[in-house]
Simulated assay, not measured.
Amino acid sequence: MAKSSKVRNPLSVLAEDPQGGSPGLELPPGALIDRPGRRGWWKEPEPLLWVSDDAVGVGALAAYRSSALAAAGLQAVLLQGRPGLERWWQERELVPERMSDPDDHHVEPVLREFWSRVVPDPEEGEGEDGEGLIAPFGRAWPGLAERGPDGVDPEGAACALADELIASGFLPSPRLALVPAGRGADVPTALGWGGPTNFENDTALISAVLRSWEDRFGARVVALGFDELHVSVAAPPRTTAHALPVAAEHFAFSPDNIWQGSGSIRAYADEAVTGSNHWGFWWD
C-alpha cells in the first residue's frame, strides 16, 4: 500500500518569495519563522508562520483576511509585542509539538473542567466572598450559554475591531502574521502559543472553546500578545440574563479577567460581555 504524500505547508510558497508576489498577496516586507526543533541535512526546515518586519496600521488585517486566503489554509491575525518581549514569537516561545489536536476535545467537558479549577472552595475558607464572586451561579458547572442573536458579518467585525484597536493605541505596534490553520480558532494551537500556560499548557483546549464561540457568537481571533488574546464578536449577548452564562464561560476560560479585574461574574457580565464586540483575555 502506497504511503500518503505529505500535505504541503501553505507557507511554502513564501519560502523564496516572502512578499507573496507569485500568489498575488503583495505582502509588506516580512519573513518566515521556522518551526522549532532539531535540524539536519536530512530534514528541511518547515515554516511555522510568516510575520511582517514592521508594525502595520489601520486596514492591514482587512487587506489580507480574505476567504481566498483562508481557502488556501492561511489565517491572517495580528501579533503584539510588549516591553521586554517585543518579538516574543522569535524567542523560542512557540511550542506547537506540545499541543494536542482541537478535534480531540469538546467544548462542554473542557469548560466544565476549567470551571471546577476556578470556582471558590468553601472548605478552603472561600465562603461568602466566593459565593458573591460566582453569583448567581453555584459551584456546579452552569452549562453552555445560548448562542448569540443575529449579528453582523463576523469577518467584517474582526477587521473593524482590528482597526479600532490599532487606531486607539490599544495595539500600539502590531505585526501582521499568516498562520497555517484551517480556521481562526485553531491559530493559537497551530502556533504552539503559550499565553495561557500558567493556567492550561495545552492550547488545543483553548481552541476548542474558541471554535464554539465562533459558532455561537460569530467570534474571531484578531490578535495575540505574549499572554493576551483579543477576539471580535459579531453576535454578542444583548441582555444581562444572556450575558451572565457567557461571563461564567469567560471566568472558566480566563479567570484573571475576574480575579484581577471586575471582581465578580455579575460585574464582568455588565462591563465586558453585554453588547461588547471585543472579548479580551489575559493569563497572569
Rank of each mutant, 00 (worst) to 15 (best):
A190Y: 05
S207L: 13
R220Q: 14
N201R: 13
I206A: 06
T203S: 12
L176H: 06
V209P: 03
T189M: 09
L178A: 11
G194M: 14
T203R: 12
V222H: 10
V187Y: 05
V222M: 11
T203P: 00
A208F: 09
A219N: 11
V221E: 07
V179D: 01
S207E: 03
L205I: 04
G182H: 15
L191H: 10
A181Y: 04
E200G: 01
A208Q: 06
V209L: 08
G194P: 01
A204H: 04
P188T: 07
P196C: 01
R175Q: 14
G184N: 14
L176S: 03
D186K: 04
W193N: 04
A223W: 10
N201E: 13
L176K: 02
R220Y: 00
V179I: 15
A219Q: 14
G218K: 07
L191P: 05
S173Q: 14
S173R: 12
V222I: 11
L205S: 02
V221M: 12
N201M: 13
V222N: 11
A223I: 13
V222P: 04
W213C: 00
A204F: 03
V209N: 04
L210H: 05
W193D: 06
T189F: 08
P196T: 01
A204R: 05
P188A: 08
R211D: 03
S207A: 15
E214A: 09
W213A: 00
V221P: 07
A219E: 11
F217I: 02
D202P: 05
V209I: 14
A204C: 06
P174A: 11
G194R: 14
N198P: 00
L210G: 02
V179N: 02
A185K: 03
